[in-house]
Amino acid sequence: MNEKVAEFLGSKREFARTITATIIGDFICAFAMTYFFQQKGFLSGGVGGIGLLLKFLYDIPTGITVFVLNVPLVILGYFLINKKFTTYAMVSAFVLSGALLFFDQFNNPFLLDDSFLVAVIGGAINGIGMGMLFKNGSSQGGLDIVAAIFKQRFNVNIGNALFGMNMVIVSMGCIAFSLDRGLYTVIAMYVGYNLLDRIQMGLGERKQVMIISSQYEEIKRQIIQKVNRGVTFLDGSGGYKHTNYKVIYTVVGRRQLAQVKEIVAHADGNAFMAVTDAYEVRGKGFNTSEL
C-alpha cells in the first residue's frame, strides 16, 4: 500500500488481519447482544448498551441506533485521534450494526430461564468478540473513541474512562427498569471485560520459571537439551546471608513445565522454583504448536 493509504489502513498484512478480526469479532458481539442480553433485558457496555436501552424502551432496532450514534463519534475521532484507529472503528461500527440487524431477523434459539446463566454466558461470548477486536487493533467504535480522546487530551486512563461511562449506562438501566437487571448487566460486563483482558494478554499457555539452585549449570544443561528452551542467568544475592548465587530464568510452554520440574527435582531437591503465567511472549521459538 502507498503511504497515504497505509496512514489509514496500515500494511497489507495488518489490513487483512484487522479486517478479518473485525468482522468475526463484531458478529460474535452482535450474537451475544441479540440472543443473550436482549432476552433478559440486560445492557452491554459502550454504544451497544445505549442501543439496547433504546430497544427496550422504544423498540428501535439496536443496529440502527448503534450506527447512528457512531457516525458523529467517528467524525470526532477522525479530527482528534489516530486516523488508522478511527478508520477501523468506523468499519467496525458498520459491521456491528449490520450484524445486529442480521441476527435480529431470527427467533432466539438460546432462551434460558436462569438470568445469572444468561449474564455469564452472554458476557463471556461478548468478551471473546471484544478480545478479538482489541487484540488486532480494532474496536467497536463508539465510547472507545471517546475514551481514546480522553486519554490523549486529558491523560485519563482508557479503562477508567470506559468504566465511568459504562456505569452511567448501567445506572440509566437501573432507573428505567430495575436494580436486578442493572446488577446482572454488571455481572455480564465483569465476565466480558475479564475475558477480553485474558485474550489480549494470552491465556497463560506460557510459563516463566525462576530457579535458585547450587546446581544451576546442570539444570541449565538439561533444560537446553531435554526441553529445548533457552536459559538466562541472573545474578542474585541472599537478603539474609548475603550469599551470591545464579538465578535461572526461562520461559516454557505449559506442557513443558512438567519436564522442568522433573529436571529440577532430580538435580537439586532443595532448589527454589517459582512459576508464573507469562503473557505476550515474543521471539524465536514461541510461535510453534509445541507450546
Rank of each mutant, 00 (worst) to 15 (best):
K4D: 05
A6H: 06
A6L: 02
E7W: 08
F8H: 13
L9Y: 07
S11W: 04
S11M: 08
S11G: 12
A16T: 10
T18V: 11
I24E: 10
I24W: 07
G25H: 01
I28Q: 03
M33L: 12
M33K: 01
T34I: 13
Y35D: 00
Q38A: 09
F42A: 00
L43V: 06
S44N: 12
G46E: 00
G46M: 04
F56T: 03
D59Q: 13
I60A: 13
P61S: 14
T62K: 06
F67A: 06
V74Y: 01
I75S: 02
L76Y: 13
L76D: 04
G77D: 06
G77F: 01
Y78G: 09
F79C: 11
L80P: 03
F85P: 04
T86D: 03
M90S: 10
V91I: 15
D104G: 14
P109K: 04
F110G: 09
L112Q: 12
L112H: 05
D113F: 02
D114A: 08
S115N: 12
F116K: 09
L117M: 13
L117N: 11
A124D: 09
N126P: 00
G127I: 00
G127C: 00
G127N: 02
G129Q: 02
G131D: 08
G131E: 04
L133D: 02
F134E: 05
G137F: 07
S138G: 15
S139D: 05
G141Y: 02
G142C: 10
G142P: 04
L143Q: 01
L143F: 15
D144W: 05
A148T: 08
K151Y: 12
F154A: 10
N155K: 15
N166H: 09
V168E: 13
V168K: 10
G173S: 07
F177R: 01
F177W: 07
G182C: 12
G182E: 03
T185Y: 05
V191R: 10
G192I: 04
G192L: 05
R198G: 14
R206Y: 13
K207L: 10
V209G: 02
I212H: 07
I212V: 15
Y216I: 08
Y216L: 07
K220E: 15
R221H: 14
I223R: 01
Q225G: 00
K226D: 15
V231K: 05
S237Y: 11
S237N: 12
S237M: 14
H242F: 13
N244E: 15
K246M: 10
I248T: 04
V251K: 06
Q256W: 00
Q259S: 14
I263E: 06
V264F: 05
A267Y: 02
N270F: 09
D277S: 12
T288Y: 10
E290Q: 04
